[in-house]
Write a protein that binds this DNA or RNA. Structure first.
Lengths: 334, 334
DNA sequence: CTGTTAGCGCTTTCAC
DNA sequence: GTGAAAGCGCTAACAG
């Protein structure tokens, strides 16, 4: 049952004519006599030796592995997030175990438990549910956006509030007189809810009467939006609003299509700004679907990784907000 | 250094008043006396015991983990592939370690070696390079599309040749008289090269003179395509061709934009069919970017997983081709 | 069918 | 400084 011819530390020791412990020290960078070190390194090279992760893991209780839980890898935002998490982990010498929960609570919990059991060094989670009470003890967890009802999960998110303000003010700046807001929120509380607050705040700031559609994600989006538009439509086809800030690029794109199908021109008649920064075919070189507030995905990922790998978890802030930026994507007047 | 209060098998044995081996048997589903089993299961529950992955891995030389190497998780095709690989692995009780190589040979090799070292149960690779000679021994490897120059890597791909024929015939069926073909290939040989063969075959079949632009990916695509169009353009603006099969959805989309910018209407003047089946925002419910030949990503992923986990690797075919299908996406006349 | 025991490969005291 | 030896938690071979 011995694993083929893979050399072990023992082999290296014998080959180098030193004791087992000495080899271990060399490998772990603990000082040993120069002469010994040379011999050991020589032997390692000759035998093509590599440490066995499992034997080490058994002793060390760590794995150089971080688990990322996202709903899926199909949504371009999640996919890009996973991509940059992987890059950041790679730089730190860690691997990413990617888990797609499809937003199912049971899977999220199961993945969490498996992460603990598999000695994951930590978990970064972007979930649809509040998994706060299912977090195994001693498992470093960082939440992207979602609020978990426990007091020890640091949270990283984009500055959604400022993003909401920016979007609204950008519409104004581009000539809108009356920007509206449309959102279909996840029912789970997260920072994304604050996009609306940003909109409302900007309205107040600029003495504009807010005008919004704010539903939970489960409703039929298209018909809800249609209803909203019709409610604000006059006999001559003109609308009460001339710009819309929509809570996601996806919803914004859908809204665009709807308005265009109704005969409105974008951005001439109505300007639209989304949120997220989704590019066609995923890459920054390509067009955006809509003008939008861009989430800084690489920075978000890097921050999550830094935090999950952090030595003193006591020092981590409970919330870290990263700045967003506006980017033109064809649905605003420039 | 003992890891907090995590119970071990020994604890369970003591608690249940049985021997260590008995506990192991219960856990591994090896028959033991009913009475013993009950006691052990009881103890496991009471102590909230879970097997230590590392101890087991150390013995078993396996990890319930499969490594997926892709260039990136941003390209929607790769992202979806990763997603479905994860789903398929999950069903089989395995985890996915996702590695993004950015197409860099050194990273591909490094990931491959790490997979071996970390006792990955296998690797599924979609790479830009021929990693054939760097594959660690005894590491089950399945290649998606790419041909590796060794004789032991089974390959899974879409039936690109048939896809090429389908695309061409679909254009004909939709009223084209002269379909052209545009491709910007990866310089690394894979099944995708056969899209062109399919086109040529269909041309022959239907007595059409082939007309194509076939370059390697590194060239400036936009100017190459522009050149191709201009070369086939008459004084009155009419073109030699009235349909184009383009080797990817991405390239097809770019080609569309180019033609539209030149004043051609799609699909009225020119029809276009791409390849891959990329949906906007990733999800099947959404529109395609172009009419296209769809690769069966879930089936491809499932096949890769089945093969990488297969017990008798001797029996695996060296090439497995899965059927593609045509899907309307607005750039053909229907 | 059960209990005992010898390792898997590594890290880490602890004598020397 | 070095080397010997004791496990980490588990599986599997073996004896009872």
């Amino acid at each position: 049952m011995k694993n083929q011819n893979v050399p072990t530390m023992k082999d290296v020791a014998r080959h180098a004519g030193v004791a087992l412990g000495t080899v271990s020290k060399v490998i772990n960078g603990i000082p040993v006599g120069e002469e010994y070190r040379m011999k050991v390194e020589q032997a390692i090279k000759e035998l093509n030796y590599e440490v066995n992760t499992y034997a080490r893991g058994l002793k060390m209780q760590k794995s150089n592995t971080v688990t990322l839980i996202i709903p899926d890898a199909i949504n371009p935002f999640y996919a890009a997030f996973a991509h940059y998490i992987e890059s950041a982990l790679y730089k730190e010498g860690h691997f990413m175990v990617l888990c797609c929960s499809n937003g199912i609570l049971e899977k999220e919990i199961e993945y969490l438990n498996m992460a603990a059991k598999n000695q994951s060094d930590g978990v970064i989670a972007l979930t649809y549910n509040d998994i706060g009470k299912y977090v195994p003890e001693n498992l470093p967890l960082i939440s992207f956006d979602r609020i978990y009802t426990n007091r020890f999960t640091p949270r990283v998110a984009s500055d959604n509030f400022t993003g909401g303000v920016m979007a609204t003010e950008k519409l104004l700046e581009c000539g809108c007189r009356q920007p509206a807001f449309i959102t279909f929120n996840s029912p789970y509380p997260g920072e994304a809810d604050r996009r609306k607050n940003g909109y409302l705040h900007a309205c107040e700031l600029h003495h504009i009467t807010p005008m919004f559609l704010s539903e939970s994600g489960s409703r039929d989006m298209l018909s809800e939006i249609t209803g909203f538009i019709n409610a604000h439509r006059h006999g001559d086809g003109t609308l009460d609003f001339d710009g819309i800030f929509v809570n996601t690029d996806y919803n914004a794109y859908k809204t665009c299509r709807l308005l265009q199908d109704m005969g409105y021109r974008i951005p001439e008649d109505i300007q639209i700004i989304g949120f997220d920064g989704i590019h066609k075919f995923g890459f920054d070189e390509n067009e955006l679907f809509v003008s939008t507030i861009v989430q800084p995905i690489p920075a978000l990922a890097q921050t999550c990784v830094n935090m999950v790998l952090s030595k003193d978890r006591e020092l981590l802030p409970s919330l870290t907000l990263l700045p967003v930026s506006y980017q033109y994507g064809g649905t605003t007047r420039e």
